[in-house]
Nucleic acid binder design. Structure first.
Lengths: 165, 165
DNA sequence: TCCGTTCCGTTGACCGGTCAACTAGAATCG
DNA sequence: CGATTCTAGTTGACCGGTCAACGGAACGGA
C-alpha cells in the first residue's frame, strides 16, 4: 500500500511534475482572485477582452474566440453574454455571412482591459517572473515551449495521433 | 488598440508565461480525458485515491482531503459521495471524535488506483517528461520549485499578506 | 434549381465546484 | 456542571462550464 507515484516516478521527475502542477494551481488561483477583487473580471473575461484587443478591428467571430480560449462554442456564448451584459463588448452581425456574429470590444471594454492589464501584468511579474533571472526566464521559455500545446499551431495530440494517409 | 501584453511583457518573459499556461491547459486536458476514457476516473478522483493510498492505513479525514486537493469541504463531500457510490472508498466513523468521518480506500479502490496509476504515469511521461533530458528535468525541477505554491508548506500569498499586529 | 450536408451560434439538461447556512459533537471557561 | 464557542461535515442555492440537440444560413452536387 505504498505511494503509487513514488514507485514509478523517480526523484527529480516527480519534483518537476509536482511543482509544475501545484505552482500553476496556486498562481492561477491568486491571479483570478485579484482580477475579480480589483476589476470584477474573471480570468476568462480578461482573456476574451485581450484576444479581442489583439484582433483586427477589435472584433472576432464567436468560434474564433472559442478556439483561442479552448472553450466550447456554447461556453463562449455564455461568457460573451455576460460581457455584453456589462457593456464591455457587443455583438455585431457579419455582413458577408449571416451565420457568424462578431464579438466587438466597446470603448468601455477597451478601457477596462487597459486598467486591468496593468495590475494583472504586475501580478504575473510578482508571482511568476520575479522568481527568475533573465537568463533563467530564457531557459524556462525554451524548455516549456517544447511541451504539447505550448506552440500555438501544434494542438496537442490525444493519445497517439490517428495518422491515416 | 495594440496588444496589451506585448507592450508590457517583453519577449522571453511573454513566451515563458504563455508556454507555462498553454502547455498546462493542454496536458491536463489530455490526462483527464485519458483517465476518464480508460478508467472512468476524473483527475480529482484519481488524486483522492492517491492521497488515501499514501496515508497511514489508507484513510484520511474529509478535511485533510480538502486541504490536500485544494477543494472546499463541501466539494470534498460531493466528490467522496461519488467515489463511495462506485465502491472505491467508504466512509468510516472516527472512534475518538464523532465529528470526523474518514474516507477509507477499499480493496476495489486500491486495485483501481493501481491500474489507473500505470497508464496515468505513462501519460505523464509521454506528455511531459519525455520532452526533456534528465539534466533538463533537474533544471526544470529546480526552477519551478521556486514558484509560489510549489513548496508543500508555503501556501502562496494573496496580494501582500494583511499583516496586522 | 433543389435537396443534402456542413457550419455557426444558441439553448436545455446536467455536472462539478463554490458559498452560506446549518447540525452535531468537542473544547473551553465561568 | 452549563453556556459559549469552535470544528467537521452536510446541504441548498447558485455559477461556470460541457454535451447533445436544434435552427438558420451557406455550400455542393444531382
Amino acid at each position: 500500500m505504498e505511494a503509487i507515484i513514488d514507485t514509478t516516478l523517480e526523484g527529480a521527475a516527480l519534483e518537476a511534475w509536482r511543482s509544475y502542477l501545484q505552482s500553476h494551481a496556486s498562481i492561477v488561483r491568486v491571479l483570478d482572485a485579484e482580477l475579480v477583487a480589483e476589476h470584477g473580471l474573471t480570468t476568462r473575461d480578461y482573456e476574451v477582452l485581450l484576444y479581442l484587443s489583439q484582433a483586427e478591428g477589435g472584433h472576432l467571430p464567436m468560434s474564433a474566440l472559442a478556439e483561442r480560449t479552448m472553450l466550447t462554442r456554447s461556453g463562449i456564448t455564455r461568457l460573451v453574454d455576460g460581457l455584453v451584459g456589462s457593456g464591455l463588448i457587443q455583438r455585431v452581425a457579419c455582413p458577408n455571412d449571416a451565420r457568424v456574429s462578431y464579438a466587438q470590444l466597446t470603448d468601455l471594454g477597451y478601457e477596462k482591459l487597459r486598467r486591468a492589464g496593468c495590475s494583472h501584468v504586475a501580478s504575473i511579474r510578482r508571482l511568476f517572473l520575479e522568481h527568475f533571472s533573465p537568463a533563467e526566464i530564457e531557459q524556462l521559455a525554451a524548455l516549456l515551449s517544447r511541451l504539447p500545446g505550448a506552440q500555438p499551431g501544434r494542438p496537442c495530440t490525444l493519445q497517439d495521433p490517428p495518422v491515416v494517409d
